[in-house]
Write a protein that binds this DNA or RNA. Sequence first.
DNA 1: CTACTGACAACTGTCAACAGTTTGGCGTAG
DNA 2: CTACGCCAAACTGTTGACAGTTGTCAGTAG
Lengths: 225, 225
Amino acid sequence: MSEQTRPPKLGRVATYAGQSLEVLRGMILDGTLAPAERINEVHLSQALGISRGPLREAIQRLASEGLVEAVPHRGVYVRSFSARELSDLYELRVALETHAVRLAARYAPQQRIDELGSMLDETESSMGSASGAYPEDPDFHARLARLAANPPLVEALTDVGRKIRLARARSAHQPRRARTALDEHREILAALVARDGEGAAAKLEAHLTSSLNNALAVLRAAEPD
Amino acid sequence: MSEQTRPPKLGRVATYAGQSLEVLRGMILDGTLAPAERINEVHLSQALGISRGPLREAIQRLASEGLVEAVPHRGVYVRSFSARELSDLYELRVALETHAVRLAARYAPQQRIDELGSMLDETESSMGSASGAYPEDPDFHARLARLAANPPLVEALTDVGRKIRLARARSAHQPRRARTALDEHREILAALVARDGEGAAAKLEAHLTSSLNNALAVLRAAEPD
DNA sequence: CTACTGACAACTGTCAACAGTTTGGCGTAG
DNA sequence: CTACGCCAAACTGTTGACAGTTGTCAGTAG
C-alpha cells in the first residue's frame, strides 16, 4: 500500500503506456520484435498484461520515433532499413556528432571531459572479461553529445542512434572491432582534451565511417541480394 | 523465427487519430493553443467531435515531436521555449541545414536547383500583393533540405523547424524582413548554382543567424523579463 | 486449371464507462 | 490570521465491448 506514496518525482513514469513504450523499444532494439515483423495488438497487449489502449499509445510514439511504421487499417510493422538508408543515417549522424564535438571542444568544462576518460578506462578493464563488449558502446557517443550542452542536439542524436541501432540489428557484437573502436575513442578524446575541435571532428568522422563500413559489410554478408 | 510479411506500401486512409494529429499540430503552430496552455482531453475531444482514444494517440505523437509536454496524471501542456532553447534550436538547424546545402551543392541535379529559383520568383511576385508574405517562408528551406537527398536529414530538419516555428510563435509576420530574407535566399541559391558548397553554407549560416537575432529581438520585446 | 465472387475470420479503429490520482476548497485547530 | 487535513470535483489512465475494414479461402464459373 505505502510503496507508491512518493511525491511526484519528475521523470518517473507510473503509467502503463509509458512503461510499454520503453519495453517495446527494448524489444525492437534487441531483436525480440524483428524488422519487417507485423505487430499484433491483441497478442502483444495480452503478452504485456495490459489492454490495447495504452499499447496503442506507445505504438504511436514509436511510429513518431521512426522505429515502427503504422499503416492505417493494415497494422504496424517494425521498420527495416536498406543499406542506402543506413548510409543516410550515418551521414546525418556524422554531421550532428562532429558539430557536437566542435561545440564540446570550445565550451565543455574540463571535468566533464575527464569523466569521459575514466569511463573509457572502465570500459577497457571490463572488456577482456564479460560478454558486455560492445563495438559501438552507445555510452561514449551519448556522453560526448551531452558535452555540447545543447539538448535538442542530444535529442536528435538519440533518435538517429536508435534508428541506426535498429538498422544494424543483425550485425551483433564483434569483439575484434571493440578494441579498435576503443582506440579510436581515445584518439577523439585526446583531441578533445587538447581543445582541438577540428581534429576531434576529423577523428570522429573517420571512426564513424569505419563503423559504417563494418556495418555495411556485415549487412551484405547476411543478405547478399 | 517469426513470420515476416512485407509492409504494405499503400497511401494514407483517413483515421480520426491521424486527422486529429494534423489538426492539433495546426492549432498549436498557429497559436490557437497557446504555449504553456493546458490541454483538456474531454473538452478538446468534444470540440473535435471524437472520443478521447484517438485524441490521446495524437497527443502522444505530438509529445514525441516535442510540441507538447505530457506529465503523467497531470495533463499535457503546449511546450514553451526560453530564449536559450530557441538559440539551441537554431544552432542545431544551422548544423543540419549547412550540411544539407553542402550535399546539395555536390549532388543535386541542375533541374531541381532551377526549380528553387523559379519558386523564389513566384514568391517575389506574390509578395507585394497579399498578406501571405512570410519572413521565413518554410518552403524554401524545406525544398533546400530535400536537395540533399537524405530523408532522415529532411525529417530531422522538419522536426527542428516545427519547434522553432512554435518557439517564435509570438513573432508574427514582419513584411520588412521578408524582403531581406528573399535577398538572402537568392544569395544562397546563387552559390548553389555555382556549386560552391562552402559559400552557400556560409550565406546560409549568416541568413539563419540574422533570422535568430530577429526572433530573439521580438521575443525580448514581448516579455522583457 | 485459372479467374472471379462472396462469405468468414482476424484485426484495427473507435467509443463509452470505470478506476485511480490530482487539485482546490472548506473547515477546524493552533 | 495561518497552517494543516479532509473531502469532493475534475481530470487522466485504463478497460472491455462494438464497429468497420482487410485479407483469406472455399466454391463456382469460364
